[in-house]
Amino acid sequence: MKVPKYLLATLTATAILAGCQEDAPQDDIEETSDEEAVETTETATVETGGRQLSEIETDDASLSAILEQAETIESYEASLDLTAAVDGGQPETLEAEVRFKDGEPPSLHLMSEGEDRTISKDGTTFYNNGTDWIDISDSVNVDQLYHVTYRNAILSFADIKNELESEESGDQVIYTLEGQSDEVFETFEELFAVEFGNIDTSEIENDLEIAVGKEDSLIQSINYDAQGEDTEGAYELSGEVEFTSFNDVDEIELPEAVQ
């Protein structure tokens, strides 16, 4: 399997298959086995997987409201549109739509490019390779299937909130940042689980907008763009995330073909 090295950690190897461009130039991709790709994902998941929202200590009223409201969220839908490019190479893109229901373990239904790709329920996970549904339950757990979860979005927001400006707009509070900040870039590199490797972020330009519901204190969308350049060349990262249908997600069922 050929996978762009800076998108390896975004989803498991099975889910990345749906987003990779098969005709990408050879110079811009590296050949990686499924096992190695999963190991990369596991490493990225460990970095944030142990953090809990309850561990965040703050006297910020708006952040406290977001944290309090998060405790009431049992399900949601999310969409992700991610683009990354490095050293002038062909941009790689990944589009995903997710239905998520909390639980022990949580249930997840992931679609990419309009096709069902991964469905997980009660610890059983199947991946659609385009022909058959493959049981990957022994290879990966649900926490590794999709990294841009609502919980991780809140963790990222909490890490950088003191750098953001805020302004009320209709029924939303819009948090923004424009300018240089390696901390913000590294935060979204981690949230999107994109691995650029060792690059100089000292002069990176960020453009960030996070929309939060004024009445319900729910993060509704994240729009992030970053561009930078070091001695090796230019790089860029952009991601658009939307969270919708809070506590209004139908039951997630395993594919009929395997029931």
Rank of each mutant, 00 (worst) to 15 (best):
M1F: 11
P4Y: 11
A13T: 05
A15V: 07
E22F: 00
D34H: 07
T43G: 02
E47R: 08
T48S: 12
G50I: 01
L53K: 12
L53I: 09
I56N: 12
Q69F: 01
S79R: 07
L80Q: 12
D81V: 14
D81L: 09
D81M: 12
D87Q: 09
L94Q: 04
R99E: 08
G103V: 03
E104T: 13
L108Y: 03
L108M: 11
T118F: 01
T118Q: 02
I119L: 01
S120D: 08
N128K: 05
D143P: 00
H147N: 11
V148L: 10
T149M: 04
N152D: 14
E163W: 00
E165L: 13
E167N: 08
S169A: 14
D171W: 01
I174T: 10
Y175G: 05
G179Y: 07
V184H: 00
T187E: 13
F188D: 02
F188W: 03
F192M: 10
A193N: 10
E203Y: 07
D207L: 02
L208R: 14
E209R: 15
V212G: 02
E215Q: 06
Q220W: 00
S221N: 09
N223V: 13
G228S: 11
T231A: 06
Y235E: 04
G239C: 06
E240W: 09
V241S: 06
E242A: 12
F243I: 00
S245G: 07
I252E: 01
